[in-house]
Design a protein around this nucleic acid. Structure first.
Lengths: 231, 231
DNA sequence: GTCTATAACCGGATAGAC
DNA sequence: GTCTATCCGGTTATAGAC
């Protein structure tokens, strides 16, 4: 966050050490003391750069997202239909996170806690989520045959869908995570079919009703909202 | 877990004290030391009964589930169509958990952690989950017009659906949780319609395909399974 | 004002005596 | 089954160096 090169270098060193230790020992066993030691800084200094151990995880999110985008690369532009575009992005996602499976559960454990900065719905994680959603935006943009109204909300829905797959992956104990792969491929197929059906122009009213509900879903973050008054 | 009355009494005292303090101060602020003190036992003794602070939460799950079932009561038997049955059960759910909203986030935070005993997919929480699923089983049993194949898997799907609503509720900061109520009512409607459509006998093949995928989903708990060999 | 270090604090968890 | 004493690791307070 600081522009000075020295500061940035120290920050990187600490994050680097943390990710290494998470990989080697898992999240719990990687103590802040050990992380600081490996980074060659004092414990207090590590806390100067990262407000808490959980904040180190934000670094993990950022990093895997960058790797994911790099993995997706330019090939996405060559794919023209929705299904193969989504499939490609999801494949790359699973490949990117695979090395972290051992401790991913612990990393994601705060996802359900509204008070945690890691919660994907929290303001602190907004930047990563927005970028991740944009990737799904690219999937939609380059696809044909999707109804205009659907295009607005679809990236958010696909982000949510991908979180569901990741959640399954976290719990997946099968060899090489083959169950997750299977589920992903089948569900991508299903999603693509749903999108096709939902795009039929004859389905205007139910589509609008469903989209209205989905829009509501996204508004949860807004605080203290009052119910609509009676007329 | 112990049959002796003395043991059971101490156990209850500790759980009681814990739930009180959770309510008063929230999960984090209710220290094990304070819980032990209020229960009139030593810290070590509290740990004799509950392996960890998280294990106390299991007690919370159990308790709210019992309250939920009591709230649903006999009235469920009087309702005949699927939609009103599901609506009734979901309403009672939201009413039951409402008093715990303040600290519910912290209670549910471990839900995403495969290593946690609180994870609803873990073996330790199996009994509660099974009982909760059975409640949705009752919803399905008493309803007409649902295809036979669907009846097997539907209780599990409804349990999952209800977990989604609870997740939304956790993050809901609107007054009186009206957003959750609105979402619940609209989505119950949607679910009911989906079940109706999915029950059309003309839809045999796609229904079977979807159910096959869903069955796969449930098998994640099984450890170290190998991918199906090639033929 | 930016960075780094040392020394405590606090609370979850465990060991071992009774 | 119950206690006391202790450990361990996340976090904070604070002092001082650049």
């Amino acid at each position: 966050m600081n522009a000075r090169p020295k500061s940035a270098a120290t920050r990187t060193k600490i994050l680097e050490a943390a990710l290494e230790l998470f990989r080697e020992r898992g999240y719990e066993a990687a103590t802040m003391r050990a992380i600081a030691e490996r980074a060659g800084v004092s414990l207090g200094n590590a806390y100067y750069y990262f407000g808490s151990k959980e904040h180190l995880i934000q670094g993990f999110y950022d990093r895997t997202h960058i790797e994911h985008v790099a993995g997706v690369g330019a090939k996405l532009d060559g794919l023209k239909d929705f299904k193969s575009r989504l499939l490609w992005v999801m494949r790359k996602k699973l490949e990117t996170i695979e090395p972290y499976h051992r401790f991913a559960g612990l990393l994601f454990r705060s996802a359900a806690d509204p008070a945690s900065p890691l919660n994907p719905f929290s303001s602190e994680s907004q930047p990563v989520r927005r970028e991740a959603t944009e990737l799904f935006g690219r999937v939609v943009e380059g696809s044909k045959g999707i109804h205009k109204d659907l295009r607005v909300e679809l990236p958010n829905l696909l982000w949510l869908y991908h979180m569901g797959i990741v959640l399954f992956w976290i719990h997946d104990k099968s060899q090489g995570r083959w169950r997750t792969w299977q589920l992903m491929e089948r569900s991508v197929d299903l999603v693509a079919k749903l999108v096709t059906v939902a795009s039929y122009s004859a389905l205007g009213p139910p589509r609008r009703a469903a989209l209205a509900m989905i829009r509501k879903l996204r508004e949860t973050g807004d605080e203290n909202t009052k119910p609509p008054g009676r007329h």
